[in-house]
Design a binder for these strands. Structure first.
Length: 209
DNA sequence: AACACGATGGACT
DNA sequence: GTCCATCGTGTTA
């Protein structure tokens, strides 16, 4: 297996507050077969009283993986077409996860392009949650998959990013205004492989750790 | 049992 | 900028 990076991230990495993990997820490598993607943009969901989260109605059949202990995938059907990939965080019963919104290719550009339709190039290949999942070959069968176990879909250590941008989450107009505005989207600054760059601002390092 | 709607993306004006 | 495919989920009755 091609891994283009460090060790598989251990369970303890995921079992922390969702915003901490979200920031630390930037730069890490999602690996599946020959495809390696560097995470460039994420969104945090869940935690306490988040009306944008799929956990807002409590435990249901769909969101069950979100209530598991951190380190598993949460994949859902979006608009009947897409299968966005989330990474569950925190302890059991927390109901929190991080949506992978965009990535940068590290390896496997050919299979990525083939899965994405053949003729695309540049950021439009991977700047959106549905695009990332499609490029990785992730579908509903990966729901609740353990990312800390080598083999299959896994998350490995990648190079740490420099400056980080943050801003409101995308596509949650149904949420409470406070939750729409909450700066829970994070991205690597000076990176072209990001979606909706306009609504992001530079952060101080004080927001994490 | 019926219904409204979505953590999007691609095509098109 | 606009429009809409597509289907499972959660809500309501």
């Amino acid at each position: 297996m091609l891994h283009a990076g460090g060790l598989v991230l251990p369970r303890a990495f995921y079992r922390r507050p969702v915003t901490e993990v979200a920031v630390d997820l930037l730069g890490q490598h999602l690996c599946h077969g020959d495809v390696v993607l560097r995470v460039t943009e994420v969104e945090a969901y869940g935690g306490l009283e988040d009306s944008a989260s799929h956990c807002r109605f409590g435990r249901t059949a769909r969101n069950e993986p979100m209530w598991q202990a951190g380190g598993v995938a949460y994949v859902f059907l979006c608009y009947g077409v897409h299968h966005p990939l989330n990474i569950v965080t925190g302890p059991e019963e927390e109901g929190a996860a991080i949506l992978i919104r965009a990535c940068e290719p590290v390896a496997g550009l050919e299979p990525i392009r083939a899965r994405r339709g053949g003729k695309l190039e540049g950021p439009s290949l991977l700047n959106g949650p549905g695009k990332v999942a499609q490029a990785l070959g992730v579908d509903l069968s990966f729901n609740a998959h353990r990312l800390y176990e080598p083999g299959g879909l896994e998350l490995r250590e990648g190079p740490r990013p420099g400056a980080i941008l943050r801003g409101p989450r995308v596509g949650v107009p149904y949420a409470h205004p406070d939750h729409q505005l909450a700066p829970l989207r994070f991205a690597i600054a000076d990176c072209a492989w990001v979606s909706h760059r306009d609504s992001l601002c530079v952060t101080t390092s004080a927001i994490h750790r």
